[in-house]
Design a protein around this nucleic acid. Structure first.
Length: 231
DNA sequence: AACGGACGCAACCGCATAACT
DNA sequence: AAGTTATGCGGTTGCGTCCGT
């Protein structure tokens, strides 16, 4: 009955510490349970997210390397918005991070494209922006509000790898184009098949291992020793 | 120095699916 | 086999910071 109100919004350092210690005790499962016993007035979902995206000891922080960036482009062209899947190929990066990166990247690309088109064609390129360009986020994921719908559905429905092969020219293709053109622009000819040694060899297993490993190495609070993000 | 817009990141929400009873 | 609960995923939003005017 007297249901505690759930806290929302940014996490405090105290909450982080608490969460880390309880995850140390109970493992990365039973998030609702952890949320309850820890006394954090957060949902299990929220706890999990905080852990996965911020507190997890294996996380890399900071800017994406050019290799990572290219890998993201490559994998996105293959898999679409399967962020978690892509993230598995990038040890230490989270789906959220990659998603954010992609959005940012696409925003830049879209702007550059627009600018280029405007410059190349007519001085009065009016049709370019259907929506007040500058700002709003949510559509960048797939480019356009409308396309957004198309893309995500399509990807989800046809699922696995390539929806576009059956459809005509999907949003994925469009993004792929962008990605490819970017790749060509910035590339020396080496494409993704000659990716640097770290990624595939370490990828899944290492990234997945991390959590297991950390538990083994120090069942209690390994994170403090590895440098907590917030410390 | 103040203001406004763009950017980056963290977090929330809703839905789908897996796991459990 | 059906119902319930927990977990994972993708999309979206909010907010602080940075940067140009």
């Amino acid at each position: 009955m007297v249901q505690q109100e759930m806290r929302k919004g940014p996490w405090t350092e105290q909450e982080d510490i608490k969460l880390v210690s309880f995850v140390g005790l109970f493992g990365e499962r039973r998030w609702d349970f952890i949320a309850k016993v820890s006394g954090l007035h957060r949902t299990g979902k929220s706890c999990r997210l905080r852990w996965v995206n911020y507190l997890h000891p294996g996380l890399k922080r900071g800017k994406m390397t050019p290799q990572e960036e290219r890998l993201v482009l490559e994998l996105h062209s293959k898999w679409g918005n399967r962020w978690s899947r892509i993230a598995r190929k990038l040890p230490g990066r989270t789906d959220n991070e990659i998603k954010n990166y992609w959005r940012t990247h696409m925003r830049k690309m879209a702007q550059e494209k627009k600018r280029a088109a405007a410059a190349a064609s007519s001085p009065s390129s009016s049709s370019a922006s259907s929506k007040s360009s500058t700002g709003e986020g949510s559509s960048y994921d797939t480019g356009d509000p409308t396309n957004n719908v198309i893309s995500s559905t399509e990807i989800q429905i046809t699922g696995e790898d390539r929806a576009r092969e059956e459809e005509g020219y999907s949003m994925d293709d469009i993004w792929k184009d962008i990605a490819v053109s970017e790749e060509n622009k910035s590339e020396d000819g080496c494409n993704f098949s000659c990716t640097p040694s770290w990624e595939y060899s370490t990828s899944d297993s290492l990234w997945v291992m991390d959590e297991e490993e950390s538990k083994i190495l120090n069942p209690f609070f390994p994170y403090y020793e590895q440098g907590m993000p917030f410390l």
